[in-house]
């Protein structure tokens, strides 16, 4: 039996040892997590960098640089529309090569453009931007200014429908991820190396950024493949805010523009909008996303609440009035074949 003082000393020593050990374990765990994250970012960068390109365009005013990436092995490139709009010539640089590229479409509504080079290429697999939520880790690979390709790491801060009081064409991902000029059009990937968005804008000086979800970019590509041109939809419904939610929605049909699909659809002023196409509606702001993913000429189901009863109406949207005057349409020749993965 140990003397009392000795046993006290021994207990205190064991306690101190346990505390120090726990601290060391925690620090080791932290460094293990940090190392794993760093390792994963490095791995994604090394795996995908060959599919990220530098885009150069020129016109009478000067030269523009940006970033882009191959979305499929046939040389199809997603990039930022601002790089190639009204450009006289567009080139794409990757793997030591400098190839001319054709602008298939430059969509000012979404802010992206689709290019094509005549060469087999690597590509980045398309991920699911619908799974992106706050704090989802993201990796960007782009060409900042005149520097070589490099990764940037951050997390999703929010999903924004508007910025500085003005609405986007569809919900954008806002990421707390440092970006630089020249990285417009760069791919934004998840930790699995799948692209979930395209960099389209920076917030303030570049400590954060806005990203177009890849789902919206794929809508642009889908229209291009199906029709050879973009088909933004127009139904002709003016939306108001209901004073209180009905059926979980405050979006109310305010008025129907005459001689539009809305006037022939069976919709009536006062109908509460519950779903447009595949997009659930809870507020009038949700209408923006719903409208973006409608296609002119494709039937869409609109679910409404009228007099306490749910109804489903079918409507065939027309081509958006602004699209009819758009200069930026596809330049795909009828015999061109574009492939969707």
């Amino acid at each position: 039996m140990l003397p009392r003082a000795a046993s006290r000393f021994l207990s205190l020593s064991l306690l101190a040892l346990a505390v120090v050990g726990a601290g060391q374990t925690a620090r080791a765990a932290d460094s293990t997590v940090a190392d794993a994250l760093s390792s994963q970012v490095r791995k994604v960068f090394e795996d995908r960098r060959s599919a990220v390109v530098k885009v150069r365009s020129s016109d009478s005013l000067g030269i523009r640089f940006g970033s882009g990436f191959f979305a499929d092995p046939t040389g199809l490139i997603f990039t930022h529309a601002g790089i190639v709009i009204k450009a006289d010539a567009v080139n794409v640089m990757f793997g030591g090569r400098d190839l001319p590229a054709r602008v298939l479409v430059a969509d000012e509504r979404s802010g992206i453009a689709i290019l094509k080079v005549d060469a087999p290429t690597s590509s980045i697999p398309i991920g699911d931007s619908g799974k992106v939520t706050m704090a989802t880790p993201l990796i960007l690979i782009g060409y900042p200014e005149d520097l070589d390709a490099s990764p940037s790491f951050g997390i999703v801060g929010s999903l924004d429908k508007k910025h500085l009081g003005r609405y986007f064409s569809t919900t954008h991902i806002r990421a707390n991820l440092p970006v630089s000029r020249g990285e417009g059009g760069a791919p934004v990937l998840n930790l699995d190396g799948e692209v979930v968005g395209i960099l389209v804008g920076r917030v303030d000086a570049g400590a954060a950024c806005h990203i177009l979800p890849i789902r919206a970019a794929e809508k642009v590509r889908s229209d291009l493949v199906r029709f050879g041109e973009l088909r933004p939809a127009w139904v002709g419904v003016e939306v108001e805010d209901a004073p209180e939610p009905l059926g979980g929605s405050t979006a109310k049909v305010g008025a129907l523009n005459p001689e539009t699909p809305a006037s022939r659809s069976g919709l009536e002023p006062g109908d509460i909008l519950l779903k447009i196409g595949s997009t659930p509606i809870t507020t009038s702001e949700d209408v923006i996303d719903a409208a973006f993913f409608l296609t002119a000429g494709d039937n869409a189901e609109i679910e409404i609440l009228r007099g306490g009863t749910k109804q489903s109406l079918s409507v065939r949207p027309a081509l958006h009035p602004l699209a009819r005057g758009q200069e930026m349409q596809a330049t795909v020749l009828p015999d061109e074949t574009l492939h969707l993965d």
Binding site: I83, R109, H163, R181, G201
Partner: peptide, 9 residues
């Protein structure tokens, strides 16, 4: 070097 501060639309 392109990366605007305002969205396209």
């Amino acid at each position: 070097y392109v990366l605007p501060t305002q969205p396209a639309n």
